[in-house]
Amino acid sequence: MAKKILIVDDDPNIISYLTDFFGDNGYETCSAMDGSEAMGIVKKEKPDLITLDLEMPEEWGPRFFRKLMKEKEYSKIPVIVISGLTGAKYAIQKAVASIHKPFDRDELLKIVEESIA
């Protein structure tokens, strides 16, 4: 069964980008526009991996991440931070990787594959 990736980003252009890109590489996807919405989708869709933007209008990435870590069931889901904030490397230390926009999609794919092989 195809693994499922949750894409959290407030920019719909980036969501459609990642949706198509992951889809083209054999992954299922779902998406959320900000942190508060994301939590509901995690519960509903139970993704295998999450890509997370940091700066979003309603709820920022780090706060969502803290909530996620408190839920035993979901705290093991690997999170990849994809952010336009430089120096964001340490914003979420437990993330499996932190990459900057604009990113190299092949590199992203490699990280995804390694995380949910």
């Binding site: 980036i14 990642l18 198509d20 336009g84």
Partner: peptide
């Protein structure tokens, strides 16, 4: 710079989807 990075990524995405859309012949994409 945060905004600019977002825009560049969106542009990357647009071009990726344009290319793959043409490859696959998916008009919607």
């Amino acid at each position: 710079s945060h905004g600019i990075r977002g825009l560049l990524t969106a542009l990357d995405g647009g071009i990726y989807r344009l290319e793959t859309g043409i490859e696959k012949g998916e008009q919607e994409r």
